[in-house]
Design a binder for these strands. Structure first.
Lengths: 340, 340
DNA sequence: GTGAAAGCGCTAACAT
DNA sequence: ATGTTAGCGCTTTCAC
């Protein structure tokens, strides 16, 4: 099976190969007539352009990188799906870069990876979206990138966000509407900008409801199941035990559920637990978790769309898009119990 | 910042570019002296070969595809990590192909994807590892591939397996050793060869222990949480209720846990539940699940290694490698309760 | 052991 | 609206 090249198509269609190229790339200045001829030839011969040749000649790789933290799980697969969809649609391939954001070698590794792949652009996910050394590295290297999530004050760079603070606020409003006053909060990993936003939403909601903030009710977690367990143990042994615990993500909330079960606390009657992210586990565990759903896939899709426009030097209408999160009420939340 | 090419290096080192190429590709017939010179020049100039040019000239893409079912979650990220590690190490990039295995358009989509990317090879994961039309399609196209998991009778193709049947057998032996006699089994998705193997292990263990098989104790699941719930409801309303349920994966086991909780059955005292796969959720839920851990990452790493050897036409020592699964005992299993 | 020439399959720049 | 020429940065072939 000999490979069909652009030359074969040119010969068959009776035009120059440049014309074929023009049709392939939908460049202007081709008569409708030749277009038809060329398309026909392409079809008959079953021609498929060679992406490597194309890449070499046009000095592009048609490769887009997706950088993410190697641990975060359900988040990643959603991001991948969204980004991939857009990339494939536009003729790009997606190269995944699961990296350890705490590694000292990060920039070094990345540099090696980026350069010997010649990426056309990069999608950054938290916490990489907020790593300033990385951002300036990419700028120096002139590698186009789009940030997903992260710190909204960095919006001089093209970014796609969701409204973490608002969603967190909404969650707390909901808890308050259930009659909860003793609402504890487990913070997320300090390296993630979202953690701060979620905390702010919590604080604002309590403040507006004139609920006095209690220091002990705010615990530092790290987005892991274990940190959730740890914080839950602290919170649930407090003399004035909270009636609701809002964890900054579902893995931590799952840790709370486990600790509560071990302490014979019945959720949601004795204790309301809520999370954030709508991780698969939030549906699987019992009781299923009230949580916040972010449109991750859509965000990644949009990020890829913007990135590709930047790569192609097309104007981008809005370099800072904010998506809306959504409260999902499940079994783990209920009206506050009567207190003594 | 002008790009350094092979020509610059050749000039600097005072040799022909072919010699640079030889050094780059560790070809024979280069004197130690020139080698040193060339390496030095490369370092000084900070030269990075252009992968696209390389790909074009050598008629390779240095791209390897990873085909997997878009749903399966924790499995996928482990596979990705393993495959990626090997690929990056050997200068390949990994392109991910999450596809719907039930789609009629699968082959068509894949063909488009493969051809316009010029993949050098493909890693197949279940249930794609067993799709004969796909396998013959790849053979016709002369696209090298390696299967991960799946039907061991297809071992005329290079494959990497784990011993599903044995692991399932071992799990049942464990349950029997706890005194369980009424052991129910929830099968996996029929499209996955592993489902059958896991069933066989169950049947063999019961047979060897002279436990009479009961039809009602074997339910058809589909690897989903919901199917687990559904089967659990059936099993737990049986007049002669099982004392242990072994689900073919952790998502289904999680479904059982939920149903049991709703029925006020206490796990593990009233009911033992075990799963398969060691999904993250198996650790997170309460009680945590006794399950089987497969060395997924290692398997994918090995699959990529074999694939790259095939691509490079190097001899492969053993085209069929079997990895060993491991029983992980957690909180969801306990000795059988005394029955009336 | 090394190099010169040709060419991979496409696009860029400049004709016409 | 179309074609010509050159060249992207590397490897292959074959010569020495």
């Amino acid at each position: 099976m000999k490979k069909i090249t652009i030359n074969d198509v040119a010969k068959y269609a009776g035009v120059s190969k440049k014309t074929i190229s023009r049709v392939l790339n939908s460049e202007p200045n081709v008569s409708q007539d030749t277009k038809t001829k060329v398309h026909h030839a392409i079809k008959v011969l079953g021609y498929q352009p060679n992406p490597q040749a194309r890449a070499l000649a046009s000095n592009q790789s048609l490769l887009i990188g997706l950088l993410y933290a190697s641990q975060s799980n359900s988040f990643v697969s959603k991001i991948q799906v969204g980004a991939l969809k857009r990339c494939k649609n536009d003729g790009y391939n997606l190269i995944i870069y699961p990296e350890d954001h705490e590694s000292d070698l990060l920039l070094e590794n990345l540099e090696k990876g980026l350069i010997n792949t010649n990426l056309d652009g990069l999608i950054l996910t938290p916490p990489f979206s907020d790593m300033k050394p990385l951002l300036s590295f990419l700028e120096t290297r002139q590698i186009p990138f789009v940030r997903v999530g992260g710190d909204q004050s960095l919006n001089q760079h093209p970014s796609v966000y969701s409204n973490d603070k608002e969603a967190s606020y909404e969650m707390c409003r909901y808890l308050i509407s259930l009659g909860h006053q003793r609402i504890a909060f487990i913070m997320g990993h300090p390296d993630h900008a979202a953690s701060k936003q979620r905390l702010l939403g919590y604080q604002q909601a309590l403040d507006e409801a004139s609920i006095k903030p209690i220091d002990d009710y705010i615990q530092q977690g790290f987005f892991t199941f274990e940190s959730g367990e740890h914080c839950a143990r602290k919170l649930l042994t407090l003399s004035r035990r909270p009636t609701a615990i809002f964890a900054s993500n579902d893995y931590m909330a799952t840790g709370i559920v486990k600790v509560a079960a071990q302490m014979n606390l019945f959720i949601p009657n004795d204790l309301t637990v809520t999370g954030f992210d709508n991780a698969p586990a939030s549906r699987y565990i019992w009781p299923s978790l009230t949580t916040i759903k972010q449109p991750i896939t859509e965000m990644a899709f949009e990020a890829a769309r913007i990135l590709i426009r930047i790569i192609r030097q097309k104007p981008i209408e809005n370099p800072n898009i904010i998506f809306k999160d959504e409260l999902i009420v499940r079994e783990s939340s209920a009206p506050a119990p009567k207190l003594d």
